[in-house]
């Protein structure tokens, strides 16, 4: 029995490589971010733009004060920042979930059934070029300045990303997989649920990733026009009050929450599905 390169040694090599790679990534990311902050700071100071481009130091301390709820200057935006963020988050998630609930089954059916495709594809292709923000006035007309209007706009805007990706996934399934499933007795709903859906998961997750980012983007646009609460509302108010630091504070929080949401929802889903059964994930 040879003991060269036993499992433990190899595992140690893997760990060492992973640590190396992680450290490298963190260092490079830090350099990139520091570069952005440096340019920002230099511009702000050099051109004396305090009023419209406050330096990162000011904005970051504004973020911290806001998050710790201990701002020296008055808070002009009603409820606390957490309530605004939560309101936005729930709207984005609701719109996203509704869009997923409709887009994924529709995508699977359109991808697999010629009849469904021929009925639905023209309709969807006609609606697709209308940008999400173009729906905002109509949504306000229908639902007023309410949560529903914002959720509706997110729903409309994010449907397409998930639909087109799901459809592409369903359509590109290796035909022999479907034939095997049919030969081993899967039909109708069982075939969709047990075979077509899992086979399309990689594409569906791509669609969800795009749609979730899009939902968060769209929420801010919709809230700027159609809400009395939420980060979009904070942004708009900060502009009316001419408070650039608050404006940028809200933008930073949008970035952080969007980043965190993507990690939380999509990565979790990914780990629990294709992470298990696909190579190199």
């Amino acid at each position: 029995m040879t003991t060269a390169l036993n499992a433990e040694t190899l595992a140690a090599y893997t760990r060492a490589r992973q640590i190396r790679e992680r450290r490298r990534k963190i260092i490079r990311a830090a350099i990139g971010i520091a570069g952005l902050l440096g340019v920002w700071q230099a511009m702000s100071v050099y051109y004396d733009l305090d009023l419209i481009l406050p330096p990162p130091t000011a904005v970051i301390s504004d973020v911290i004060d806001t998050l710790l709820l201990r701002r020296p200057d008055p808070w002009l935006y009603g409820p606390s920042i957490y309530q605004h963020l939560l309101a936005s988050f729930l709207r984005a998630l609701t719109g996203f979930a509704l869009a997923a609930a409709l887009a994924i089954p529709t995508g699977l059916l359109v991808g697999r059934s010629t009849a469904v495709r021929e009925f639905l594809e023209p309709v969807i292709r006609l609606l697709y070029p209308i940008p999400g923000i173009a729906w905002i006035p109509l949504a306000i007309l229908w639902f007023g300045l309410t949560d529903k209007a914002v959720v509706f706009v997110v729903f409309i805007a994010e449907f397409f990303a998930m639909f087109f990706n799901t459809e592409a996934g369903a359509r590109s399934i290796n035909p022999v997989i479907i034939v095997a499933a049919r030969c081993y007795g899967a039909r109708g709903f069982t075939l969709v649920w047990r075979v077509i859906l899992p086979a399309s998961i990689p594409h569906i997750i791509t669609g969800m990733r795009i749609a979730l980012g899009g939902a968060w983007r769209m929420i801010v646009a919709a809230e700027m026009l159609a809400a009395k609460m939420g980060v979009g509302f904070v942004l708009m108010q900060a502009r009316y009050q001419f408070r650039a630091a608050d404006l940028m504070m809200a933008m930073i929080l949008i970035s952080v929450v969007g980043f965190g949401t993507e990690k939380l929802i999509v990565r979790t889903l990914e780990r629990r599905t294709i992470g298990k059964w696909e190579v190199n994930r």
Binding site: N174, V176, V179, A180, C183, Y184, A199, I201, T273, I274
Partner: peptide, 15 residues
């Protein structure tokens, strides 16, 4: 289900 088949590809379900 009264016939079972083996294809040229293994055609296993990856998930």
């Amino acid at each position: 289900l009264d016939r079972a088949i083996v294809f040229q590809e293994a055609a296993l379900f990856p998930w």
